[in-house]
Computed example of a mutant assay.
Amino acid sequence: MHRGKGMKFVGDSRVSAEKKPNIPKDYSEYPGKTEAFWPNFLLKEWMVGAVFLIGYLCLTIAHPSPLERIADPTDTSYIPLPDWYFLFLYQLLKYEFASGPYTVIGALVMPGLAFGALLLAPFLDRGPERRPSKRPVAVGLMLLAVTATIFLTWQSVATHDWEAAAQQGQIKEAAEFDAEDPGYKALEASGCLMCHGADLTGTAAGVTLVGTGLTPEEISNIAVNGQNTMPPGQWKGTDEELQAVAEFISKLGAE
């Protein structure tokens, strides 16, 4: 700027002074091979995602996830079952080549190779074609993954014992009790909680001790002589501990 001469502006040729409208490029020279990301492709993605999201929300409302009882670390007979989207991996671990001494292969190596192949698919097949017949590598990997997932999921559902699973996860009546009670301490010391559970609601190996409606004498007789699935001779404690256990169980009632 020179004194008395006014102001002078210097323009930068790298900045275009002409405003261009936000119009996607013309891809008519490549029919069926590519299209504008905005708004054509992105709009399609949003529409498909919205349909799946609404469908998923409707399914969760119509079929809410079932709840099971509180986890019991003393129940060694409980067999956990993963959610439906992991059933194919759960089924894979049942096969001989992917279980036992080969668990690492079934749990890490095979899933790692499968997902690694899916991640590498865009780099293995970088052609501009959009037709499945023109992209055999990407289409082949995807079909293999989808087919294996559907088959293993179906096998897991078809071979699982759903009745036993419903029984082992069934919410049972609970009772409030003092864990410092001599009767509970005697149950814990004698190992009875391994079959009847820490909350005394039973496991697959033992029945619930809550709300039995039995007298202390009847409970003492069962503990010594057995009944149904409980064989005789299971009680290893003293007579005083047995009396405390019998009185403790007879007072347990459902909430």
Rank of each mutant, 00 (worst) to 15 (best):
P66L: 02
P66R: 07
P66Q: 07
P66M: 05
P66F: 03
L67K: 15
L67A: 15
L67G: 15
E68N: 14
E68H: 10
E68F: 12
E68C: 05
E68T: 12
E68I: 12
E68K: 11
E68G: 15
E68P: 05
R69M: 04
R69C: 01
R69P: 01
R69K: 10
R69F: 00
I70Q: 06
I70K: 07
I70F: 02
I70T: 09
I70S: 06
A71F: 10
A71T: 04
A71L: 07
D72T: 00
D72C: 02
D72R: 01
D72W: 04
D72G: 01
D72F: 01
D72M: 01
P73R: 08
P73S: 03
P73F: 01
P73A: 02
P73K: 08
T74D: 08
T74P: 00
T74I: 02
T74C: 05
T74H: 06
T74L: 14
D75W: 02
D75C: 03
T76P: 03
T76Y: 13
T76F: 13
T76R: 15
T76M: 15
T76V: 14
S77W: 10
S77I: 08
S77F: 12
S77K: 14
S77C: 13
Y78Q: 08
I79T: 15
I79G: 09
I79S: 14
I79D: 12
I79Q: 15
P80G: 09
P80A: 09
P80S: 12
P80V: 03
P80I: 06
L81N: 11
L81S: 13
L81W: 04
L81M: 13
P82Y: 05
P82E: 04
P82V: 13
P82F: 05
D83W: 08
D83Y: 09
D83Q: 13
D83S: 11
W84G: 06
W84N: 10
W84I: 14
W84S: 13
W84R: 11
Y85G: 07
Y85N: 13
Y85P: 07
F86A: 12
F86V: 00
F86S: 11
F86M: 12
F86I: 00
F86H: 12
L87D: 06
L87S: 08
L87G: 13
F88Q: 09
F88I: 00
F88L: 00
F88K: 00
L89Q: 08
L89G: 13
L89H: 04
L89Y: 02
Y90R: 12
Y90W: 15
Q91N: 10
Q91S: 10
Q91V: 04
Q91K: 13
Q91M: 09
Q91H: 07
Q91D: 06
L92N: 05
L92G: 03
L92F: 00
L93S: 14
L93H: 09
L93E: 14
L93V: 09
L93K: 05
L93N: 10
K94H: 13
K94S: 08
K94I: 00
K94E: 13
Y95Q: 06
Y95V: 08
Y95F: 15
Y95N: 07
Y95W: 13
Y95E: 07
Y95M: 08
E96W: 10
E96F: 06
E96Q: 09
F97W: 14
F97V: 09
F97G: 02
A98I: 02
A98N: 03
A98C: 05
A98H: 01
